[in-house]
Design a protein around this nucleic acid. Sequence first.
DNA 1: CAAATAAAAGGAACCGGTTCTAATTCTATT
DNA 2: AATAGAATTAGAACCGGTTCCTTTTATTTG
Lengths: 329, 329
Amino acid sequence: MVTIKDIAQRAGVAKSTVSRYLNNGSVSQKTRTKLDELVKETGYTPNTFARSLKANKTNMIGVIIPRLNSASTNEVLNGIDEKARENGYELIITNANQDRERELSNIQTLVKQRVEGIILLAREITDSHQSLIQEANLPFLVLGQRAESIHSIAYADYEAGQKIGRYAIELGHKSFLFFGVSEQDKAVGLERKQGFMDSLEEEKDISVEIIETSFSKRIAYQDALKVLPNTSASYIVCATDNIAIAVLKAAIELNYAVPEDFSISGFGGYEETDYVQPSITTMSYPYKDMGIQAVEFITELIDGTEIPYETLLQNELVVKNSTKAKRKA
Amino acid sequence: MVTIKDIAQRAGVAKSTVSRYLNNGSVSQKTRTKLDELVKETGYTPNTFARSLKANKTNMIGVIIPRLNSASTNEVLNGIDEKARENGYELIITNANQDRERELSNIQTLVKQRVEGIILLAREITDSHQSLIQEANLPFLVLGQRAESIHSIAYADYEAGQKIGRYAIELGHKSFLFFGVSEQDKAVGLERKQGFMDSLEEEKDISVEIIETSFSKRIAYQDALKVLPNTSASYIVCATDNIAIAVLKAAIELNYAVPEDFSISGFGGYEETDYVQPSITTMSYPYKDMGIQAVEFITELIDGTEIPYETLLQNELVVKNSTKAKRKA
DNA sequence: CAAATAAAAGGAACCGGTTCTAATTCTATT
DNA sequence: AATAGAATTAGAACCGGTTCCTTTTATTTG
């Protein structure tokens, strides 16, 4: 590998001159030309480590994702990727594979790699997270969950829940089945449900049955096969699009008609909801925007600019063919 | 940030002693205990850059993926991630976003980052790739495409095409519609099609209509809306599962019955094919295994071990509900 | 044309580690 | 107790850059 020393020697100048040439300037036209040639000829590129070592700056942002095969994660990553590139940062993406221990160890790994900031796509923020983050003493941004005393960007999940509730009420539904996930996930498990429940508050003659299932399509599908035959609901609220897709599959296999027998809606706005029969009504989430916003924020944090501790991103209802007005009894 | 010098001073020993303590050994019990304490107390971690600088070793593998929101990419990454972790490598994942220029620039970025090897999930290998890879002079592994004089792991796409063809023939189909993609993608665009076509060779009274569409569901869907009303085919071969899903959607919206009016099959084995109605017959691909295999190979290349230039991974037919025997005319 | 000033270049120190060699200390042996 | 040999340790050099300070060279000005 050719180094700055080699270049300097061959050009007959000092290392420092080459360094100046590479960075700001103040080099005579003559040496500049000479160095241009040599760099081209040798294909010289400065060693990033040597640079980072001295500069104490790595130009890298660490990203921790909960799992790889998730459409929402990918969209967020897409936004992060695009914006990071634009801002001149390299990304180190690490996968926690839904394992809390691994998430923590990923934080440490990134700290060791001397990233300048960390973006965490979160499921849940525990005390271990809190203390590790304090300790790391790095710009840190949590996405998708609100977190005390850590900067975060989250979706307006509570409001999203409300919007679905109000929409269903408008359609005349009274009897609901809610497929949710564990409340450990505050945003998805708690806030969406809470928003939905609160939106029904002032209505009369409402019944709601709540089932806790999983993010996994397979498990949600199995749960739905068991639950659907015994429900009196006319509207099924699913806390994620994946759950909605799984419930739809179960409903059809049990020979129900959707939306005639059940209306079904999800949360997420996944493309996949367009490609099942019927297409599924859902709350669309600004995933990519979140990624973009995240890089903007982390950049500001790195630069020492103040940003709000909590940012909420709104989402909107997309009505498709899996929901319809309740027929008059 | 606390450095090795700080530790050395506080322990009253030389830097080199601390370094020895951190690495191999040959340190007296007394200093070892002392240093244990100090490291714990200060939370010292060695600076990766300083280390890499001297060692000329980074323990990092670079991965280039064509795009983020792809189920197959994610599965492969999953395997890579798992195995890399096991082998003690860090991953730098970069996204080329389907842009050839960006793919090339990603290679350069990774080379600058001094990764020890690069894994490229490829769509197409051009001459620019070839020369850049030569120049980089790093262990390099291409996944998903065969590439001349570069190590590669690919799927047995030709054979996969044949298997689908033979299966359809067995079901008694004679008239086919093939939704393919550009031949620039050798594996998906060319080999799958070629395998399929060759498998029909010895049959009589066969008709095949070939449509070139896109990897994008949206575009494939639009193409299908145009083509389906005018086809006489009874079996539709789609070069990817995404295309199959899009074609199925179009078929249903045009009021065809699947598989009664058309049998439809895809390639890929995506989970999503289970969640549409009807579920789609497909060739399953060992994505995760490829990721695992890839890390094994790149590790061996880094260590200087010889590996075969070309490795082919087999895939198998998974019959679901979107295909059935042709009814006798 | 000499002196003052600006521009360019050189040299050394440093970033935070590792490694090699030489020096010191400890242990065992006679 | 003297000495050989092994185990530890210190110190310097180095990895490949950047940066600060000093010196040299070029340019301008009176």
